[in-house]
């Protein structure tokens, strides 16, 4: 596996490597002896959009959640910005997390708060609890939030409540909230799986644009292979808790898809 990965790692754009992510021997067992991740070795460059594809239940979500430690890895290293994220806890884990944005399948907004308040939730790693409680966020955070609302196509939505939005609008808020963190990396766990095809493309376009414009590496778990090929600069195929494909989207053959998903009837 390592041999397959290294050439890509060296091909990563130079100068952005401060945001590169290195996984070494990442292993996760929810139940002892039943690994969901079987020792993942990956080097993700510090820019561009990387798509992880693979069948349901193959550990894509677990992999992404191990990176920001929503799931505790059983063993292995997660090297990012000079730290092993797997070893952090308490305050140092929180301050590492605030530089890692996350976008969720079910958006995970706080439904009863307004769009603006949801965006400001992205600043909770920086702003003390009492200031957040009194909604006394720094003026530049609020200005940033307005700019981001424009950037994701929701101008004038600041005072709308999150539960009054459509799925596509919620996901735009979800992405804006992640960008509010001023992240060094964005993790997106099935960001389009609850959305219609057209909205899915729009959401991927926004993620792709942020990755390019702000030079933030984005890792996306995605079920839709076509979307993955269209927007990703690199594709990682997983099956059974291991990486079985790692390369550019053009290199993804039908044989590779067969290895990833198994069988072939579904491809017709």
């Amino acid at each position: 596996m390592q041999g397959q990965v290294s050439p890509l790692a060296s091909a990563a754009p130079q100068g952005d490597d401060s945001r590169a992510l290195v996984l070494r021997g990442l292993r996760k067992e929810y139940r002892a002896g039943q690994p969901v991740l079987r020792g993942i070795d990956l080097v993700l460059p510090g820019s561009g959009l990387t798509a992880i594809i693979g069948p349901s239940g193959t550990g894509k979500s677990t992999l992404i959640r191990c990176i920001n430690r929503l799931v505790q890895p059983t063993s292995g290293e997660i090297l990012f910005r000079g730290q092993d994220l797997a070893k952090l806890s308490g305050r140092s884990l929180r301050s590492a997390r605030r530089r890692i944005g996350m976008v969720f399948q079910e958006y995970n907004l706080v439904e009863r708060l307004t769009v603006m308040e949801n965006l400001l939730c992205g600043r909770l790693g920086y702003v003390p609890a009492w200031r957040a409680w009194l909604r006394r966020f720094p003026a530049q955070d609020i200005a940033r939030a307005f700019d981001l609302l424009d950037a994701v196509g929701l101008p004038g939505f600041a005072t709308r409540r999150a539960d009054a939005l459509s799925g596509g609008q919620r996901q735009r808020v979800g992405i804006a909230r992640a960008i509010m963190q001023e992240p060094d990396i964005i993790l997106a766990d099935e960001p389009t799986s609850s959305l219609d095809p057209k909205t899915s493309v729009e959401i991927m376009e926004i993620l792709h644009r942020f990755a390019a414009e702000r030079n933030i590496p984005v890792i996306v778990n995605i079920h839709n292979v076509e979307l993955a090929k269209r927007f990703a600069s690199r594709i990682i195929g997983m099956t059974g808790g291991s990486v079985v494909y790692d390369g550019p989207p053009q290199g993804l053959t039908e044989a590779d898809l067969k290895t990833i998903y198994g069988g072939e009837n579904w491809m017709e």
Binding site: N68, L70, R94, S95, A96, R97, R98, R99, I100, G101, M102, F104, E106, Y107, N108, L109, V110, E111, L113, E117, C121, G122, L124, G125, Y126, V127, P128, A129, A132, W133, G174, R177, A178, Q181
Partner: peptide
């Protein structure tokens, strides 16, 4: 899910209670 999102953003326990 909302709580998970705030945790992922690096929110402290108190912030999660108050805004989540």
């Amino acid at each position: 899910g909302s709580i998970e999102a705030l945790t992922a953003a690096g929110a402290s326990r108190m912030s999660t209670l108050l805004l989540g």
